[in-house]
Design a protein around this nucleic acid. Structure first.
Lengths: 230, 230
DNA sequence: CTTTTTAAATGTTAATTATACACTTTTAAA
DNA sequence: TTTAAAAGTGTATAATTAACATTTAAAAAG
């Protein structure tokens, strides 16, 4: 009985697909590519690639992400393995989805253009090939859950940001409005931000103080474990 | 450039490994097998098997579980894909771990013996082969998290159970003592149990009322979404 | 049959956390 | 100097969670 026998017959292709979240102009977005290759030529899909013999899945996901954005050392997390038998009509492929959070301002725009990639607001996404729509839904759900327990949302912001931007980010991740005062109180209670002297004058006459993220304090908090419910 | 080209060169074996949780005599346990085959003959490991061409990962995990316990329709959930390049010294294998919750009283003891499997308390587990120890740690962490949000702990109990058993179960999952009155209040607040006339007289002179789980109400609650923090 | 023993059953108060809510300040533009 | 537009700030109430001790039931022992 073949439960524990190796069988090259059953070998499969292993792919990684990345749901890349970015945040721009108050909206949460994902990066998609218009495929210039088969299968699915001309259709939209997540970026992905195949697992190579000499790398693990995390490395494959990083490689794929780097190839499209030029970025390294990005917040990434494995999401789920998708394995429906005919999910890829061409050949049996199991895909392990990863999601990544990037600061949309720091990525390499030319690489994106070169790969016919484009940012889409969550509500304006085109239909994607295979089971990629399901992957995106999973990723959004995970991001929401994760966001309500760890302040990983910070990964999506530029180095300096205003409280308003931070709040907008959380509002677009959670898809609900938050009370400004309560939000600020909770963020301050976390004690992981540094208020800078500098102001962002681009939005209001008064200007809004910029903050940055105190990595030391943040790491310490993560160690001791904390909750961040909104 | 090979990012999106199929290459049979890179095909890999896909395994599933199952962390099977059970609850017996006040302790949370997992089911392990002593391997009667290579690699790792004579060592302890999780049960697992290879993904077949005609099934998806969920099906493979169910098959493996059924083969060892005789049980079907068990609570199972995909945990994580483990992919370190040399995790299996014999051949490149990616393993997708699943965890399952079973009522230890209902499984087929003879099948377990036949497969040289054995239940171990979480603290008495032998060292496992490959990265199976890591898988177990992941599974425990997930079970704890999941347990504090959904009352999936119920899956581990027999049809009829006492409040004390239920509390013991949660105490052993969370590895901490809970206050009896608060626990009962929270469980009652969920309104998903039915108190039976019948008592369990095996533990105390007074006897403890048995409860069962109201599937209708439980499902309704799951739909509407609820939290169950302890 | 009375007493003892053991676990079961039960509610209230205090503490913490989350929510709701409105006015003042700053600065540039009119 | 007035106006406009967003930034900044604190408190009171509600809801949830945590802490805590006594009474009850029934069998066993005397």
């Amino acid at each position: 009985m073949g439960l524990n026998t190796y069988s090259s017959e059953d070998k499969a292709l292993l792919a990684v697909d990345c749901i890349i979240f970015g945040f721009d102009k108050g909206d949460l977005k994902i990066l998609l590519i218009k495929r210039t290759f088969e299968p699915g030529l001309g259709e939209w899909s997540l970026i992905g690639g195949f697992l190579k013999k000499e790398e693990n899945l995390d490395q494959a996901a990083s490689r794929v992400l780097h190839h499209l954005t030029g970025l390294r050392d990005i917040y990434m997390e494995q999401l789920y393995a998708f394995s429906k038998v005919d999910r890829d009509p061409a050949e049996r492929t199991i895909s392990v989805a990863y999601y990544a959070l990037i600061d949309i301002a720091t990525h390499d725009t030319s690489l994106i253009k070169q790969n016919s990639a484009q940012w889409f607001g969550l509500k304006d996404c085109p239909k994607l090939i295979f089971d990629h729509d399901r992957m995106v839904l999973h990723a959004i759900a995970r991001l929401r859950r994760k966001t309500s327990n760890n302040p990983i949302g910070f990964e999506l912001l530029p180095e300096k940001f205003t409280m308003k931007q931070l709040q907008n980010l959380y509002e677009s991740i959670l898809d609900k409005e938050l009370d400004k005062r309560n939000f600020i109180n909770k963020v301050n209670a976390l004690d992981i931000l540094v208020k800078l002297e500098e102001k962002d004058m681009s939005v209001s006459r008064k200007g809004a103080y910029l903050f940055k993220f105190d990595e030391e304090k943040y790491k310490a908090k993560v160690e001791e474990g904390f909750s961040f419910k909104l």
